[in-house]
Simulated scan of single mutants.
Amino acid sequence: MSPIALGFTLTFIIITMVLSKWQKLGLEKDIAWGTIRGALQLLFIGYVLHFVFQTEHIGLIIGIIAIMIMIATQNAGKRGIGLKGIHWRIAAAIAVTEILTMGLMLGFQIIKPTTQFIIPISGMTIGSSMIVCGLFLNQMNREVGSSRELIDALLALGATPKQAIQQALQRSVKASMIPTIDGMKTVGLVQLPGMMTGMIIAGSSPIEAVRYQILILFAFTASAAMTGIILSILSYKLWFAKDMTLR
């Protein structure tokens, strides 16, 4: 894509801002700031990855993945305001999911152990896990709020905190996985995923692109389950006070 063609893509942003102004949504400043910030971030990471791809240094690869996990943790942690210690639990859930997912891919030689494969797939895995963490925390807050009387009753009858909150945890993990599962059902029919589309546009065979997309699809499903379950195990006590009553 030429710089001139790239510049023409701003037409989509202008259309969005015009529609926002027309409907008095008040989103013009947010759209403008998001456009500038997103473009600068993408340009920056493009140059960083260009350098990393050339060096293939393991320390740089680990550093970039660590930064991805840190940023994902901060973003998902906004859904858990008031839950002390939630950030390190989110980071642990995402990190364990990334290690297990990438370990399986490299161990079974599904992907090549090069930066070109590790960094993009790690980014997609971490991003997917971040969304799962945010959905889990949102749903847990709603579940605890709506089930407070039931949980208090179970605690009064002698149930442990984990037993009392178990159903809420299960529903929250399930809710955090629904977008991933729904995506599996409609992929190829309703949507052509980004990785597959990108490879086709870059000139790869559609069959080869489909193979890699299947890899991502299956990996995302497993990583969503792992992230949701790990975070539920690590975080359920945060909804209880020291005397094991609901906060």
Rank of each mutant, 00 (worst) to 15 (best):
I110A: 15
T180F: 03
Q139K: 13
S176M: 02
L192W: 08
I99P: 01
S176K: 00
P179A: 10
G145T: 05
I111E: 12
I178L: 12
M140C: 12
I126K: 00
T101Y: 12
T97S: 03
R148H: 06
V144C: 07
F117T: 02
G123F: 02
T97I: 00
F108Q: 15
N141V: 01
G123D: 06
R171K: 13
G123Q: 02
A156V: 00
T114E: 15
P113E: 15
V187C: 08
G145A: 11
F136T: 01
F117N: 04
S172F: 07
G158H: 09
E143M: 12
D152H: 11
F108S: 15
N141D: 12
S128Q: 13
L150Q: 14
L100I: 01
D152P: 03
V132N: 07
T125G: 05
V144Y: 06
S147A: 13
I111T: 07
I181T: 10
Q163E: 15
E143P: 02
Q163D: 14
G134K: 09
G188V: 00
G107H: 04
I151Q: 13
F117M: 04
S122I: 05
L154S: 04
M124G: 08
M196E: 13
D152V: 07
L155A: 09
V187E: 15
S172V: 01
S122W: 06
P120Q: 12
T115D: 14
V173T: 08
S172Q: 10
G183T: 06
K162I: 03
V96A: 03
S176T: 00
G107K: 05
L137R: 06
V187R: 09
G188Y: 03
L100F: 02
I126Y: 02
A156E: 08
L135I: 02
T114R: 10
A175M: 09
I119N: 03
A168I: 12
C133N: 15
I165A: 11
K162T: 01
D182M: 01
I126D: 10
V187I: 11
T115N: 13
F108W: 15
G145K: 04
M196V: 00
E98G: 00
A159R: 05
G188C: 07
P161G: 11
A164T: 04
E98I: 04
I131Y: 10
P161N: 10
L104E: 13
I121V: 10
L157P: 01
F108I: 07
L192S: 07
E149P: 04
S129E: 14
V132T: 10
I99G: 12
S129Y: 06
N138A: 13
I121T: 05
Q163C: 03
L150Y: 10
V190P: 01
Q163F: 04
I181P: 00
E98A: 09
S129H: 11
N138V: 01
